[in-house]
Design a protein around this nucleic acid. Structure first.
Length: 962
RNA sequence: GGGCGAAUAGCUCAGCGGAAGAGCGUCGCCCUUACAAGGCGGUGGUCGCAGGUCCGAACCCUGCUUCGCCCACCA
């Protein structure tokens, strides 16, 4: 037996992973040199937010990126994967403020800007470190020395430079426009940060009395927000609406305010529709210009005043009657409705679905407000991005996402970039107290550039976090300096990110990259799937269905998962949440290692969403273990193997000719799978690549080749004096070692730890580098394609499986050998089977005899299986068989064959088919028909024999020429 | 209201013009000296519905139905 140190029976990632992690990092294998003469390949990691830790969605996207980067690195590219983290302005803000509220019942204003920022940085520090650790645990080969933060000094410089330049070019400007106000976070948010949801509300009818009219003379308006009436400055009706023609220009008494406002005739097209719509409600609309986008537009056309009655905190404010001032909106609504009712001005109230904007981050109801803000003129920047995509300079995978991108780009609106938050890049603009001019500058100016006054103060606002993100692909490389890094690694080859930030981020990078560098930031945008739980629900902490990637790596008991619920204190019912966790993870999560999770990510990734569950990852954990054990087997049987000698042997044609058929077969399959994996990765079909490896390792290498190899390996040790056997043993050892070694290289980008470990233990030719991750990725070599070996193996497999099936059917124990007679009509096939009879005998555990006499009646008490048209397996069971069962099994096969024959007959009887289908297709169908017919004949004979008679069997379409 | 996507085995999904596939589940039989996180075998599908194109359709076209997702300032 062997002396090689035995590997443990089960792969233990916790023992293997830390060593390799350390080894890679200590050797700096992840670092790319921008001065290297080799062809660059670069990816920028979508920087995770410093709001916490990595979730399963990150694990998916990052794993796919690491697969690409490791693959290209092994192919010899100068592969650079840029790490970084994002300050995530508003996300951190909301988090910190909630925390502050909970712990000290304070707001950020109680703390003040400086202290708040201090805490934000401390948070960033903790979170950033944690994220980095997680990325290392997952084995991501990020170029760590380059790691960046969106608010580090170099990023700041890039942000200021970009802002100032865009301002100089007139692409950044300041304007008073209708914006989305988040009254909880007290900041503007962009259109993208507002989710519109339909909520249950009411539609109220209110009577506005006609000024100077008869008592009860009133115009009725409908509204979903009665409290905004305090800010009304008109009632609008459609100019063509006959019902109201007599009221044009008349005044109405605005209830509760003592103000009089006009009835104005309007005829506008808003968003492609006529406004106001006479058929909706009464056809008359109250106009609140300061707090409704449509009303604002109406006011601009009709020259109406704008009256702001809601303040920054979402309360009623000054121009409104004193009674309401200071009321939050909810209270104000109650008060206004009650007062209207008391005044007898309230009409019908009905239930109504109202679309309501909510802040994505804080959940606050968005108030449309008129405010002066900083804007980016987006349409102009978008033009270049549109053109670049049209010209194919950047393409999207999956391709259909192109449309989504283009649609948004062609309908793009100006981008509001100022935020009234503290955590972020301060806007480089200074306001003059003297002349009220604005000075935009790279360095803090000493004086106002307009009037020279020193009484200037910097703008209080910060920039939308996506502004700095938009510069990320080049700000990380040293822009605005023209660095070597920039020249080497820009544009990136690929961007891998989730479709949820297509507009937020991808679109902005495209615009900024093209504007500032004149080149697209990446050639391909690969959009990943969304991960959900097994029921298709989005994973979330508050639902208790989320899977933490590190729990998959290290495992977590149910108790640990439950305990964590307490620590994290999400704003939901804790008991409910615990129950959900118990239900979703009844047995906790077993430790599966980073490799298994990574492989699962690749294998499960499709164009749809991924329904992830612990069970599904377990399958790949099992696969890693299978690979481990195959290697374990090999290592126990490689003594005496000399990789150099084997390599030398393969380099000669005589040496190659000495390979047996199974060896030629597995090497042919190996080179095919190498080609498949390479092609799949080339077109981002990660699941196909992973599937090809999975199938090769498990179904071909393990199930067949290793089984075939066993007798040669075992025998070798006992027959050392037998030169032929020893030579054969060396060949089998060599092929097994080669197949495994190649598989490790092929699979390394997917599962780097286990492949590194196995690869290092395998004997291999000495000229290879010392680490798997820098050794070459396999290349498919067509000279190893061996169609003959593949055909022969297929035949042997079919025969072996047929034998197993018969044994199984007749209750013969797998351990018990059985006699079979293989009757092969085709001489060529017979020769193959005779040559490899031992292989069949071993694979199926039978004792076989080959005969050419296919027509002879089978001995009584034997079972028969027909393979193809010209081969019968006769299993001699000595009367053990259940005749009725055998009859019904064969009858079923006959029925199947009849169906097939009928189908082929119809096809081949069709003159059009014969005339129009390609010749090879016709020939193929003819061949199939002949085979099916022959097969059917054999089956019919078998049935007849069983029934005791001879000759034809029941059924119809038997026979036919051969 | 627009746009995009999906409907294939009990479940989750591949396949996208020339013989219906995988994994899981399920049902059997095996602790065979790499692996029970394993081996072997079986069961299971008029490929959502209706038309059309084609010699040939799960695959292409049209319509319909049902689910997702994204975008959208209608009172």
């Amino acid at each position: 037996m062997t002396t090689t140190s035995a590997l443990p029976k089960q792969y233990d990632p916790s023992e293997v992973e830390p060593r390799w992690r350390r080894f890679w990092l200590e050797n700096g294998f992840f670092h790319a040199d921008e001065a290297s003469p080799t062809v660059p390949y670069s990816i920028t990691l979508p920087p995770p937010n410093v709001t916490g830790s990595l979730h399963i969605g990150h694990a998916l996207g990052f794993t796919l990126q690491d697969i690409l980067i490791r693959w290209k690195r092994m192919q010899g590219f100068n592969a650079m994967w840029m790490p970084g983290i994002d300050h995530a302005s508003i996300a951190v803000h909301v988090l910190l403020e909630k925390d502050l509220q909970r712990r000290e019942n304070k707001t950020r204003f109680d703390l003040g800007r400086d202290e708040f920022l201090r805490q934000a940085w401390a948070w960033k520090e903790r979170s950033g470190v944690r994220i980095g650790e997680q990325e290392k645990l997952m084995g991501y080969s990020l170029d760590w020395p380059r790691e960046r933060f969106t608010m580090d000094e170099r990023a700041n410089r890039a942000v200021i430079e970009a802002f100032v330049r865009l301002h100089e070019e007139g692409l950044i400007f300041r304007a008073k426009r209708m914006i989305n106000w988040d009254p909880v976070s007290e900041t503007v948010v962009s259109d993208l940060e507002v989710d519109t949801v339909e909520e249950n509300g009411s539609l109220w009818e209110i009577r506005y009395p006609i000024a100077g009219g008869a008592p009860g003379d009133a115009i009725v308006v409908a509204t979903t927000r009665p409290e905004t009436l305090l800010g009304d400055t008109a009632v609008s009706v459609h100019a063509g609406d006959e019902r109201y023609k007599h009221l044009h220009g008349k005044l109405v008494e605005l209830p509760l305010t003592g103000r009089r406002i006009p009835i104005v005739a309007v005829d506008l097209m808003i968003d492609g529709k006529s406004w106001p719509d006479p058929s909706f409600g009464s056809g008359a609309v109250k106009v609140t210009p300061a707090h409704d986008p449509t009303d604002y537009e109406v006011s601009q056309h009709a020259g109406l005043p704008v009256l702001q009655v809601i303040d920054a905190t979402g309360r009623i404010c000054d121009p409104a009657p004193a009674k309401y001032v200071g009321m939050p909106m909810v209270e104000a609504r109650k008060a206004v409705v009650a007062d209207l009712e008391a005044a007898g001005l309230l009409g019908t109230v009905k239930d109504y679905k109202v679309p309501r904007g909510r802040s994505q981050r804080s959940g606050a109801v968005i108030e449309p407000m008129l405010m002066e803000q900083w804007w980016v003129k987006a349409a102009q920047l978008a033009e270049k991005a549109i053109a670049a995509v049209e010209q194919g300079k950047t393409r999207f995978v999956p391709e259909h996402e192109t449309k989504t991108f283009m649609h948004w780009m062609t309908h793009i609106k100006d981008w509001c970039i100022s935020r009234q938050l503290w955590c972020g890049h301060r806007i480089p603009a200074w306001h003059c107290a003297q002349c009220h001019g604005i000075t935009v500058a790279r360095e803090p100016p000493a004086a106002c550039t307009h009037c020279g006054s020193a009484a200037i103060t910097q703008d209080e606002d910060i920039l939308d976090t996506w502004f700095s993100s938009g510069l990320w692909p080049f700000s990380t490389l040293g822009w605005p300096d023209r660095t070597r890094e920039l020249a080497t690694f820009y544009p990136n080859n690929v961007l891998v990110t989730g479709p949820d930030i297509l507009f937020f981020w991808v679109a902005r990078m495209m615009m900024m990259g093209l504007h500032f560098l004149g080149k697209v930031p990446f050639r391909t945008v690969y959009l990943t799937s969304i991960i959900t739980d097994e029921n298709g629900a989005k994973m979330s902490k508050t639902k208790g269905n989320g899977i933490d990637p590190l729990d998959v790596v290290f495992g977590a008991t149910l108790d640990q998962l439950i305990e964590r619920v307490d620590i994290e204190r999400p704003p939901v019912d804790l008991e409910l949440l615990k129950r959900a966790v118990r239900k979703n993870f009844p047995k906790g999560i077993p430790a599966m290692g980073a490799d298994a999770l990574r492989f699962a990510m690749a294998a499960l990734n499709t164009t749809l969403r991924i329904r992830l569950s612990v069970d599904r990852v377990e399958k790949y954990r099992n696969f890693i273990n299978k690979l481990w054990n195959a290697s374990r087997f090999a290592l126990m049987n490689l003594d005496g193997y000399d990789p150099e000698r084997f390599e030398a042997q393969l380099s000669t044609s005589a040496g190659r000719a000495a390979l047996g058929m199974p060896e030629r077969w597995i090497l042919s399959r190996l080179q095919a799978v190498v080609g498949d994996v390479d092609a799949a990765l080339e077109s981002f079909r990660f699941n196909d690549a992973a599937g090809a490896i999975f199938h090769f390792v498990w179904d071909e290498l393990c199930d067949w080749y290793i089984e075939i190899a066993k007798p040669h390996l075992y025998a070798g040790a006992e027959f050392e004096q037998d030169a032929a056997r020893t030579a054969r043993r060396h060949i089998v050892q060599g092929v097994l070692a080669t197949a495994l070694e190649t598989t490790m290289r092929l699979m390394h980008p997917f599962s780097p730890f286990v492949t590194g470990e196995i690869w290092q233990k395998l004997s291999k030719p000495p000229q290879l580098p010392g680490s798997l991750m820098i050794t070459v990725f396999p290349r498919s070599d067509p000279s190893w394609t061996d169609a003959e070996a593949e055909r022969e193996m297929r035949l042997l497999q079919e025969v072996a499986v047929g034998c197993r099936m018969l044994k199984q059917t007749y209750g013969v124990s797998p351990a018990q050998s059985t006699d079979v007679e293989l009757r092969v009509g085709n001489a060529e096939q017979r020769a193959v089977i005779e040559r490899h009879l031992g292989l069949i005998e071993r694979a199926a555990k039978v004792t076989a005899r080959v005969s050419a006499d296919i027509a002879a009646p089978a001995p009584a008490g034997s079972a028969k299986e027909v393979v193809g048209g010209d081969l019968e397996i006769v299993m001699l069971l000595g009367g053990l068989i259940d005749v009725a069962a055998e009859q019904s099994r064969i009858a079923k096969d006959i029925a199947k064959a009849d169906k097939e024959i009928a189908l082929l007959d119809r096809k081949l009887g069709n003159a059009d088919f014969l005339a129009r289908a390609p010749e090879d297709v016709v020939a193929e169908q003819r061949g199939r028909l002949a085979e099916e017919q022959a097969r059917r004949r054999r089956l019919a004979d078998a049935l007849a024999t069983l029934s005791g008679g001879a000759g034809d069997a029941p059924g119809g379409a038997a026979g036919g020429a051969r």
